[in-house]
Every structure is written in C-alpha cells, then in structure tokens.
Simulated scan of single mutants.
Amino acid sequence: MNLTEHYNQLYTTSSKSILTGKYSIDTEIKNESDSRFGITLLIRPSDEIKANIQVLLNELKQVEPEQYYYPDSDIHITVMSIISCSENFNLNHISPNDYIQLICKSLVDVDKVTIQFKGITASSSAIMIQGFPTDETLNNLRNKLREDFKNSQLQQSIDSRYRISTAHATVMRFQEKLLDPEKLIQTAEKYRDYDFGEFNVKSLELVYNDWYQRKSNTKVLGEFCLR
C-alpha cells in the first residue's frame, strides 16, 4: 500500500464529509457503562513527538473545545488488534502468558522500527496523525504475527474488522456536533504536511484495553524491548 496516497484519499473524502455536515459523532465516548474490551499490541510515540502533537491539539481545542482529545498517555499506533474490542470479551477468557510467548517468537528477527509522523489525515469522525514506517520492518512483523497466530490455537480476531496496514495515531474524536466545520478544516490544512518528528521504537506493549485506549482502563500485559 502507498501510504501517502491512502492518507490523501482518506483526507479528501473525509474533509468533504465534514464540510457538508455528513460527519459522524461517536456517542459511546461518554458512555460510562461501555464494556467493549480487547487485546492490542501497540507502539507509543516518544515524548518529543507527543509534545509536538499537543501543539496541534491545543490549536484544535480553540476551534472545537467540546470534542474528545487524546491525552499523551493514550496516544498510540496499533501494531495489531489481536482480539477486537467486544462486550463479550474478558481478560479471564485467556492466558496472557501464552500470548506473550507467541509474540516473543514473532519478534525474534525484528531489529529496529522507525516511524516518521508527518502531516494529518481525517476520517468522518476523527483527526489522525499520519505515520510512515521508514522501511518494511513493521509490515513484516504484522505478517509474521498473522502467520503465527493463525497457526496457534489462541483466541484471536486479527483482521476481522479490517486488515491493518497504516501507522497512524488517532488524536481527536467527534463527540459533539461541530461548532465550525469550516474553521476545523482550515486549521487541519495548516498541519497537512507538518513534521511532528521521527522516532525509533524502543518497545512494544501488549495491553488489555477499552475502545479508546484510555489509560484508566488499560492493563499492560507485557512489554517487548527492541534492539
């Protein structure tokens, strides 16, 4: 997949939807009884990257103060959604150590993962930072995880919602009607090619998480250091 083309197409389509009022509001964000949980392998960006992201978010908050903004603690890149969030899943259903052992096996040949965050894109309900892996390492790891889980007896739902191939980080979600869609897109345009920085991934986390990866609802099951 050409990530640049993918992000551009997504932004073009979504910005038109936002400007014409055809965007989506996530009504579950404020639902305190939301019980959708799953298992995710993820990457957390560096502190420097997160500080640069906050520059964008502070500007967006001036335009749309009532929307949902990810705090630093929750910003992430999904490597693989191993068990998609569902009301039917509970951590008691699995043995986390089995998953840790399999992921360790998948990581044996992984050396270094480097990701550049440059520009933003959008969906009909969110604003996202565009992530670009500098080589095929992340893609190769995902394929190895797919293969290893497919050949195991472990519960998983990899690629059941969609086949993950990007390295974006969602940073804002629409939880209320937009006050000024046109001004939101004008602000987004300023950051379409903004360089948020590049970082070497030092570790991956396996987490038990809710739909929004909120720290208060997240349990770290394992951490995997990269060389």
Rank of each mutant, 00 (worst) to 15 (best):
G197L: 04
L204T: 03
Y191K: 09
Q155L: 15
E176C: 09
T121E: 03
L178Y: 00
V201P: 07
D159A: 01
P71M: 10
C225R: 15
F196L: 07
M80N: 09
L60E: 14
S160L: 02
I53K: 09
N139V: 12
Y162M: 01
D34W: 08
T187M: 07
K50A: 04
R173K: 13
N8C: 04
S124Y: 13
T134E: 10
W211F: 14
S86E: 04
N217D: 10
D26I: 04
Y23V: 00
Y69F: 03
A169I: 03
N140P: 08
V79M: 13
E147I: 05
A51E: 05
G21H: 11
Q213H: 10
T137L: 02
Q156W: 05
G21W: 09
Q54F: 13
E136P: 13
L179E: 11
T218L: 02
T13C: 08
L154V: 11
R192Y: 01
L141M: 06
I185C: 05
I164S: 07
N52Q: 11
K219E: 05
K183L: 02
W211I: 00
E59Q: 14
Y162G: 13
Y99V: 08
I129K: 12
D74V: 15
S123A: 06
E198D: 02
Q130L: 02
N140V: 10
T13P: 00
D159Q: 13
N151T: 03
I103T: 08
D111N: 09
I100T: 07
T166A: 11
E28V: 02
I18L: 01
H168W: 05
F117V: 06
T170E: 10
N8P: 08
N52D: 11
I185G: 01
Y162P: 04
A169H: 15
I49V: 08
F149Y: 12
V63Y: 05
D135Y: 06
L184Y: 00
Y68W: 00
S35M: 03
T12V: 12
D47F: 07
Y23Q: 03
R142K: 02
S15D: 04
D26N: 12
T121N: 01
P133G: 05
W211G: 03
L206M: 09
T27D: 06
L57V: 09
S203A: 14
P133W: 15
P133H: 15
I77N: 14
L19E: 02
T218S: 13
E136D: 12
C85F: 10
N97E: 14
N8S: 14
C225W: 15
L141H: 09
Y162D: 12
I25R: 12
G197Y: 00
E59F: 12
P133D: 09
A167N: 03
D74T: 15
Y70E: 09
H168G: 06
S203H: 14
Y208I: 01
Q175E: 10
E176H: 13
T187R: 05
Q155H: 11
K105S: 00
R192D: 03
E205L: 11
H6P: 03
I127K: 12
T27M: 12
R146D: 02
S15A: 12
D109G: 03
